[in-house]
């Protein structure tokens, strides 16, 4: 095994990530404004901004899903029990004692097991909840006539949408905080900007990359 500086985040993935940062921040800001938490922007323009941003994010997700499946990157997000306890123990205890993070990135596992499980839950439950309720919310007039009690249904839909928004806000707080754990904030953010990170490569992987994808090695 050798630690090498390898490009782990290709251009699209970085674009995906930072676009999400921008769009989700805008959605949370406008969404909470519409909910009445603040009145920084006028309501009408906020509705437009929220709607357009949401549609842009949906488009991005469609591209990202396509990319995940065509490149096989989706495997990165499959949760694994193996090693999860150690990571959990590290965050709950080891980190205070200054221990090293128990997980070492490998080429096909950019995320530690706890991270992967979180992303799995986010991608399969929270994000779908937010866009399903969001689309129902947006298209209320298209279905209101077809179901009984649409006024009550839209209230439930809106509340689920709001709850999902709060959960995403909570995720972002933890997500940003955890960047400060381990190797530190800068070294965690840098790969998502440059694309390159220190990875343990097997001799085979190293040989493969040197032969076939030399541009991925620094």
């Amino acid at each position: 095994m050798a630690k090498r500086c390898v490009k782990v985040y290709p251009r699209f993935e970085r674009f995906w990530h930072w676009s999400q940062v921008l769009l989700i921040s805008a959605l949370l800001f406008t969404g909470f404004g519409l909910n009445g938490l603040h009145g920084i922007l006028p309501f009408g323009p906020t509705v437009m901004l929220h709607t357009i941003t949401a549609l842009a994010l949906l488009a991005l997700w469609i591209f990202a899903t396509f990319w995940l499946f065509t490149t096989g990157t989706w495997r990165q997000f499959i949760p694994r029990i193996d090693g999860m306890l150690q990571v959990a123990r590290f965050y709950a205890y080891g980190v205070f004692k200054g221990e090293e993070h128990p997980y070492d990135k490998v080429l096909w596992r950019k995320h530690n097991p706890l991270q992967a499980a979180t992303y799995f839950a986010l991608k399969w439950f929270v994000f779908p909840a937010v866009w399903v309720t969001g689309l129902l919310y947006l298209t209320y007039n298209a279905w209101a006539d077809m179901v009984a009690g649409s006024t009550a249904i839209i209230a439930v839909v809106a509340n689920l949408h709001l709850l999902a928004g709060y959960v995403i806000a909570a995720f972002i707080i933890v997500h940003v905080y955890l960047l400060t754990v381990g190797h530190g904030f800068r070294s965690h953010v840098k790969p998502m900007i440059t694309g390159y990170d220190e990875i343990d490569l097997t001799p085979e992987q190293e040989a493969y990359l040197e032969t076939n994808e030399p541009q991925r090695l620094m």
Binding site: F32, L34, N35, G36, T151, A155, L162, L163, G165
Partner: peptide
Amino acid sequence: VFMPGTDSMNLTGILG
């Protein structure tokens, strides 16, 4: 009628 923006302190708002 359901009116967005009128009640940010409802149960969901508090839970959130």
